Computed example of a mutant assay.
Amino acid sequence: MSEAAAAGRPRDTRIDEAVLDATRGLVAEVGYADLTFRAIAERAGTSVPAIRRRWASKAHLVHEAVYPTDSMVAADEVRDLRAEVRAVVERCLGNVGSPHGRRATPALMSELMADHALEVELSSRLLAGGRESLAARLAESAARGESRADVDLGLFIEMVFGTTLVAIVMRGREAVDDAWVDGLVDVIVDGIRVR
């Protein structure tokens, strides 16, 4: 969300959540190109100006709706390398493979490739939310002797996201099942495990 959205009177988080929920539902139904602030406002029970005060553009709103900042964060109770990697893969699959994720991701990628400043801003937003937590978890794993201490966090995230995205495009969401998740987890864990 923009700094301007944070200024002024306190934000009503109920409006935020209603808008994000409406965005997820509508982008799954109509796709990114046909998604409008007016339709989102109607479904969320708010106004277009209220949405525009909170999000700088449709890309900003859809990015936040589809990719929450905790997308790469495993559940707090997970304390085992394999379980942590699996939790991250499942979270990513839940976002990218959801009906709204499948409809929004290609259009968002196109917008990001066409606008470098937007790409930097939105990619930074997503990474900022999960990078610190994921780095801490990988450091804990290294301290337990499960994984190498020199794991490239960016490469780890790119492998999970990129592989998940390509698998959904090439195989279809239904084929990206538990066996697929197990296979990807095996590859990642084998790559970062202490030898």
Rank of each mutant, 00 (worst) to 15 (best):
V120Q: 12
M113P: 00
R9Q: 13
I40T: 02
A114P: 00
R43P: 04
A59N: 05
Y67P: 07
V73M: 04
G97E: 08
I15C: 01
C92K: 08
P68W: 00
A74P: 10
S71E: 09
L122D: 04
V89N: 00
E132K: 13
R125E: 04
G25K: 10
T13M: 14
A41V: 08
L112Y: 14
V66L: 11
R102D: 02
V66P: 08
E140G: 11
A41S: 06
F37V: 07
D34M: 01
A87D: 15
R52L: 10
E140H: 11
T105D: 09
A41T: 03
V66S: 05
P68K: 01
G45K: 07
S71I: 13
V19I: 13
S133Y: 12
E111F: 03
D80S: 06
L108N: 06
E111K: 12
A136Q: 14
S98I: 00
P49Y: 06
A41I: 06
A135C: 00
L138G: 02
A107K: 03
R53G: 11
S57G: 10
L138Y: 07
E111I: 10
G31S: 08
V96W: 10
W55F: 15
E140Q: 13
E77H: 15
D12F: 09
V19G: 02
V89R: 03
A41E: 05
A139Y: 05
R52W: 09
L35T: 08
E29A: 14
A114C: 02
C92W: 11
A117N: 06
P99S: 04
